[in-house]
Amino acid sequence: MTRLVKEHSFGRKGDGAVAERPVLTIKDLRVSVDGKPIVKGLDLEVKGGEIHALMGPNGSGKTTLSKAIAGHPRYTIDGGEVLLNGVNLLELSPDERARAGLFLAFQYPVEVPGVTVANFLRTALQAIRGEEIGVWEFQELLAEKMKLLEMDESFAGRYLNEGFSGGEKKRSEMLQMALLQPKIAILDETDSGLDVDALKVVGKTVNSMRGENFGALIITHYNRILKHIRPDVVHIMVDGRIIRTGGPELADLVEEKGYDWIRSQVA
């Protein structure tokens, strides 16, 4: 499995990059929930400059994988490693993982009443950067990112995700990602329930971040989103394992023939 991934790791030229090119390495990861094994030995490597798509039917373990990588306490790690530039993320708390450069865009972002988007984002950005950020500097940065995401200014003053429509929640996730500038981002079904305009915005955000210092793993059920974000590598996940890895054409194959067909090909 690892070998296959490496064949497709065609990163761009990155000579002269200031920061170390990020690499997220998942080795033989096993995760269970309430004693039930969900992820059953998964290998994957995402490097800076690469966009990977992880596709799979419902119940294949995609969300469990993303939550486990981010460190949700409900998910038990039964074995394996998750390394970000050699640092074992599994030994870190969720906030330490974020500060190491990991970002998870939630499928169902949590509502936090009474906390404004602006207040939250400034607190988060300061935590990630490890330094105070002046109010004006922050406002400018926020305005710039909100413009990119075609968001109304009033959004910054609303309570985080409270009363947001499905589309607004996903935009809010993309705003957070654009602002926090992670090294590796995992987008957990960010495309689900979005209309075409919102999908375009998600695509635009991810594409704007593409580069040597940013890698992404896009988890999705359908290939709709992949029309807006061209993946370099596509993985098919079924029953807790990656059963096939290929180029963008694999996503089209899924669209055309369905997961059952691919499963039958592998079996």
Partner: peptide, 16 residues
């Protein structure tokens, strides 16, 4: 977890 996944410590998240 959501707030911590954005880099806030448990204490900072609780405070928020």
């Amino acid at each position: 977890f959501y707030l911590m996944s954005r880099g806030l410590t448990r204490k900072q998240a609780t405070r928020l």
